[in-house]
């Protein structure tokens, strides 16, 4: 294909997206579109499965049977969501194993928030409330993104995830209405998870390289800073109901804008964690790589068994 022909195809392609048409896997697409989607969707999938670990850390210690079941179901959903997203990504011609390989070698990133440790039960509340809260803000617009398989996966994810944030907030409510010790536990969790949650919505617009292109392809509807503001505006009143204090002395309602002004985010910390220097990066990767390597003989056994059965079937037929 000549450059001119490609340019023409690209124009038709962009026009389709602009008309809100969906792109399906076998449709022609610019190489950059394919690559960007593989990157974003696989990162999203990785975030789901690495995200299982900090919460998985509390399954065996959940303080009641009801909480244990809810937490298990939530972590299980995350596995499911990872699976939906890997599958959607596979329609673009990359295998799940290749994506794992990229994760395990550090080539692919995942949400940096999961590199923070979960040290108390209240962290289960804070993660559900704040981390899932921020994730929902990011994810809901993706239900309408241009790539069909991604949009469909996100519809399912969003539908299932609606209980996650409520589950977390309920944990916080219970703590805040409990003993002083419990309330302190809740405040401590908010103190630790607040800033990482804000960072989770991505670097400031000035530093974000992908935004413009992502907007065009409907991978994004609002900029990182807009999403962050939306998150803060909706979360502060929720903290008030809990009777907790947001750990930001500069946080103040701005009558003019109708939004909350907030303090400086420590972006150095963000980049350090992204680069692998966070408190739990190593532990998380070790767990993922370990599960994959220790499971190799199991996966091989299942394949070998399937092949043997297939041969037996063929023999019977002939």
């Amino acid at each position: 294909m000549s450059d001119k022909e490609i340019k023409n195809l690209e124009e038709i392609f962009e026009a389709r997206i602009a008309r809100d048409e969906k792109i399906e896997p076998k449709d022609w697409m610019p190489e950059k579109y394919r690559k960007t989607h593989i990157r974003q969707m696989s990162q999203h999938a990785h975030s789901e499965i690495v995200g299982m670990l900090p919460e998985g850390n509390w399954i065996t210690r959940a303080p009641s049977l009801r909480r244990k079941a809810a937490l298990l179901a939530k972590v299980q959903d995350e596995a499911g969501h990872g699976l939906y997203l890997y599958s959607a990504c596979e329609t673009l011609g990359i295998s799940r194993d290749e994506m794992y390989e990229q994760l395990h070698t550090g080539k692919a990133k995942y949400s940096s928030i999961f590199n923070y440790p979960t040290v108390t039960w209240a962290d289960m509340g804070a993660i559900g409330w704040l981390v899932d809260g921020a994730a929902i803000i990011n994810q809901v617009p993706l239900c309408n993104t241009s790539f069909g398989p991604y949009a469909r996966a996100m519809v399912r994810v969003c539908k299932e995830e609606s209980f996650h944030q409520r589950q977390g907030y309920e944990i916080m409510l219970k703590l805040c209405n409990g003993t002083p010790e419990q309330k302190e536990m809740a405040q401590d969790a908010l103190n630790r998870w607040w800033w990482p949650s804000l960072m989770m919505l991505g670097p400031t617009d000035a530093e974000s390289i992908h935004t413009e292109q992502s907007m065009k392809w409907k991978l994004k509807r609002k900029s990182n800073d807009e999403l962050r503001q939306q998150f803060i505006d909706q979360t502060v009143p929720q903290a008030d109901i809990l009777g907790l204090t947001i750990p930001d002395p500069d946080l103040k309602f701005n009558e003019e804008t109708g939004s909350y002004d907030f303090g400086e985010i420590d972006w150095d910390e963000f980049w350090q964690v992204v680069k692998g220097h966070g408190p739990s990066n190593k532990k998380r990767m070790k767990a993922r790589v370990g599960a994959w390597e220790e499971g190799a003989w199991v996966r091989d056994a299942a394949m070998a068994y399937a092949e043997k059965q297939e041969k037996k079937k063929l023999k019977k037929v002939s």
Binding site: I49, M52, G56, A73, A79, L83, G290, A291, E294, A296
Partner: peptide
Amino acid sequence: ELCGHGPTLETDIAGT
């Protein structure tokens, strides 16, 4: 204890 540490995502979900 195993949730998140199984040989595949599918077995993780089943075990859970």
